[in-house]
Design a protein around this nucleic acid. Structure first.
Lengths: 187, 187
DNA sequence: CCACGTCCGTACAGTACTGTACGGTCGACC
DNA sequence: GGTCGACCGTACAGTACTGTACGGACGTGG
């Protein structure tokens, strides 16, 4: 068996977290899945908590920064939002991770990271909606509403795909959702 | 200490589930919180799984049926939707339960119940939007989008209240959200 | 060639939870 | 006032996970 790097443990921890929540980030099952024993783990990490924190910090950088960088250069705010939502909804890098984090939001190591990520995303959306012409308070409200819809959509698609057939993966319905997210309350 | 009924265990299980997920529905901690020992539990239930299932079945009846009955009599579909969303968003009977269920959607006992609840709610919304004049496919899409926003909103409010101050509990923002949920994509 | 750093296996407590078996208490009802 | 059933405590395995201590393998540079 090949030697493992710290990164191997981090990605394994994230997938386990997505599947079974915080309590699934356990040393013994992870070691079995990686084909080693706990001796390996306790060389790379001092603690189970350290693994969880490092994994989430890594996810914070990858997931949050990468997507925003991908669309920040788009000039037209409407196009920017459309592209952003399309990326966010179709690409689910670590499927099921965010629901797991939301569910364990009171965990002492999850809480601060999830908070920072949420703040950053909502702030970015608020800025985009402001560029669209909404006054500040209105832009922020719209950002929170749109972000809520995004969060709920991804969670429903993963949690109850059987209950929502022909909708969650229909491209037409997807366009409908994105239009709904972009349309501001300017009626 | 007073004798406990089966219902006492059920409600305790639901609050524990909301706080710590499926793995938090454990016999020993629940017994401690209820002031008894596991001897009590294994008289009322045969199994830890039975407790979880019975608790979720009870929640399915209370949470799903009660709210729908409360608004089904309203004639005007627009008023009905407005009232429904207001109730659903402001009253969070067991705060944090739904995020926990979504996160453990692959659990063999959670899955079928969560599926049924989601189907029933989306079906009710679809019907209401159809009464509003949307064609069937369009009504169903709108229902899923609106339900997504609802799910995301409740989860965000619970998970990261610190990241969304002055929004999640602002009545004006709440009205904004409800208007957004009712407004169909008829532009 | 050997010595050191890297990486992993193994063995030893310690803790928390699940089920099971059985025994005890307390009130209702005859 | 005794008996029966509802309800709970206690004791006994059994399992899964966490940390720690230590020892072995393996490659690389002096």
């Amino acid at each position: 068996m090949a030697r493992l790097s710290k990164q191997d443990w981090l990605t394994a921890a994230l997938t386990a977290l997505a599947e079974g929540g915080v309590s699934a980030v356990a040393v013994v099952p992870l070691a079995q899945r990686l084909g080693v024993t706990r001796g390996s783990f306790y060389w790379h990490f001092t603690d189970r908590t350290e693994l969880l924190r490092d994994a989430l910090l890594w996810w914070e950088q990858q997931g949050t920064i990468a997507v925003i960088d991908q669309v920040a250069s788009i000039a037209d705010p409407r196009d920017k939002l459309r592209r952003l939502f399309l990326i966010a909804i179709t690409e689910d890098p670590a499927s099921g991770l965010e629901p797991a984090l939301v569910a364990h939001a009171d965990d002492p190591v999850v809480a601060p990271i999830l908070q920072r990520v949420t703040e950053r995303r909502v702030a970015f959306l608020t800025e985009a909606y402001a560029e669209l012409g909404l006054p500040p308070a209105r832009a922020r409200r719209q950002a929170v509403v749109a972000y809520s819809a995004y969060v709920g959509w991804t969670q429903l698609r993963r949690a109850t795909p059987g209950a929502l057939p022909e909708v969650v993966d229909d491209p037409e319905a997807l366009a409908y959702l994105v239009d709904n997210l972009i349309r501001t309350g300017d009626a």
